[in-house]
């Protein structure tokens, strides 16, 4: 174990290997929880899309396919950078130049943070446009631009309700992810021994990838219905 020299083993554990296994397993279980958390909304999506397919098709036309695709790409680049950082911190031997490692990690994670901010900016701009068009669900919802089949039944509103709920919950996760990755960028670029935080980085990385995966599903489900 290359880490055992730098990591203090917490009380319940026998060695660093066991502690790392616990951190990773704990994170995966948390992600299983998250799958079910979003899962409730995906069930809602499935039900209403099954019942009101026409409304979903119409609603989807309001979304920018290219914009959504760009957002997906931005997230995937971020994921790549996080994966590289995780790889770097794990594989680095104890005698590696710590300063160089610090700089690399700070750079990758800093860039990821910026990409996350870029994603959110695009998303919020989209929200802004939709709200401007009167498409925020609720009493002020303006369905006049939609065909009568989905306007008079109000079903078109359901598409936008689900859109804002699901992408909103995703955006909340992005905010948390950006804070965590940004925090790691600062922490690691200042740390004497960045490897001490390898488990933390792996855990945060898993979370970041997970938030990515959710978007991988949200994109076709909301932008590509036609």
């Amino acid at each position: 174990m290359s880490h055992s020299t730098t990591i203090e083993v917490a009380l319940p554990f026998d060695d660093a290997q066991q502690q790392r296994s616990a951190a990773i397993l704990g994170m995966w279980i948390f992600l299983a929880t998250e799958i079910l958390f979003f899962g409730g909304l995906f069930v809602g999506y499935a039900v209403y899309r099954y019942e009101y397919f026409e409304a979903f098709r119409e609603g989807s036309h309001e979304m920018s396919v290219v914009g959504g695709g760009l957002m997906t790409a931005v997230l995937l680049i971020g994921s790549l950078l996080v994966a590289i950082s995780d790889h770097a911190i794990e594989e680095a031997s104890a005698d590696i130049d710590q300063r160089k490692l610090r700089r690399r990690l700070g750079g990758y994670l800093g860039a990821t943070t910026l990409l996350g901010v870029a994603f959110l900016s695009m998303e919020f701009y989209e929200y802004y446009e939709l709200i401007h068009k009167g498409l925020f669900p609720g009493p002020g919802f303006d369905a006049s631009s939609f065909p009568a089949s989905v306007r008079d039944t109000q079903t078109i509103q359901m598409y936008f309700t689900l859109f804002f709920c699901m992408t909103g919950l995703h955006a909340l996760h992005m905010v948390i992810g950006i804070s965590l990755v940004g925090g790691m960028a600062v922490l690691l670029s200042r740390s004497e021994h960045p490897q001490r935080y390898a488990n933390l980085l792996t855990g945060i990385g898993l979370y970041w990838h997970f938030v990515d995966v959710i978007w991988i599903f949200l994109y076709p489900l909301f932008y590509l219905v036609r």
């Binding site: 994921s79 996080v82 994966a83 995780d86 990385g205 898993l206 990838h209 997970f210 990515d212």
Partner: peptide, 8 residues
């Protein structure tokens, strides 16, 4: 792919 490679 993300789970297998990125998430190890």
């Amino acid at each position: 792919l993300v789970a297998l490679i990125f998430m190890n």
